[in-house]
């Protein structure tokens, strides 16, 4: 396969309490499946889905927590170089919402400054058991400058939208960066070593 089969590559990372449906969201989006039981995702590191947005191929690399959130033991390295974070809670579980500030602290500490964060309230198919109102979540997300969306991995509500909107935002951010930074030009350190190495060709 050629390297040119996509125009953008983004790393998206999911966090949030155990059992809020992170893996289900990823599975639903990447494989169109809703796993009936919470089958452990042994050996699966991240899932990839390539989507097309306005004629551009965007490859999304979506990372799951590998269960390390269960006892609040996510490795810092998990957050490194993520372009976007999906912070997930369960609308039928107050506790999962109340833990959000704790997750935000982790993001503050370890994520890149440019990370885009989306707040996702999952399980809207269980509306009759709702414990977290939309208004509260909307207020919270506004205060934290996050996008906010409610989804159902089970009914496939808003799942596609979540990832596609995110991809759009990531593209426009990346464009901005390219404009401002002129990324194509070498970095201070590397520029030096590259020209240096080129000149040794003449020996």
């Amino acid at each position: 396969m050629s390297m040119e089969d996509y125009d953008f590559l983004f790393k998206i990372v999911l966090i949030g309490n155990a059992g809020v449906g992170k893996t289900c969201l990823v599975r639903r989006f990447t494989q169109g499946l809703f796993p009936p039981g919470q089958g452990a995702t042994i050996g699966v590191d991240f899932m990839i889905k390539t989507v097309e947005i306005n004629g551009e191929k965007v490859k999304l690399q979506i990372w799951d927590t590998a269960g390390q959130e269960r006892f609040r033991s996510i490795t810092q390295s998990y957050y490194r170089s993520a372009n976007a974070l999906i912070l997930t809670y369960d609308i039928t579980c107050e506790e999962s919402f109340r833990c959000l500030p704790e997750w935000l602290r982790e993001i503050e500490q370890y994520a890149s400054n440019k990370v885009i964060t989306v707040l996702v309230g999952n399980k809207i198919d269980l509306a009759d058991k709702r414990e977290v109102s939309q208004q509260r979540a909307a207020e919270f997300s506004e205060a934290q400058d996050m996008y906010y969306l409610e989804t159902s991995a089970k009914e496939s509500d808003n799942v596609e939208k979540l990832f596609l909107d995110l991809a759009c935002r990531l593209i426009s951010e990346a464009r901005q960066n390219t404009l401002v930074n002129n990324v194509a030009s070498p970095l201070p350190g590397e520029g030096k070593s590259i020209s240096y190495l080129t000149c040794c060709n003449f020996n």
Binding site: D145, L179, V180, N181, L187
Partner: peptide, 27 residues
């Protein structure tokens, strides 16, 4: 923190142009 309130996402476009950002490191 990473999420310091200053760069508001909504204003991403304007902000990007107004600030001089530096590419610190590309992995």
């Amino acid at each position: 923190g990473a999420l310091s309130k200053l760069p508001v996402f909504g204003a991403a476009g304007a902000e990007g142009a107004a600030q001089e950002s530096e590419k610190e490191c590309t992995p």
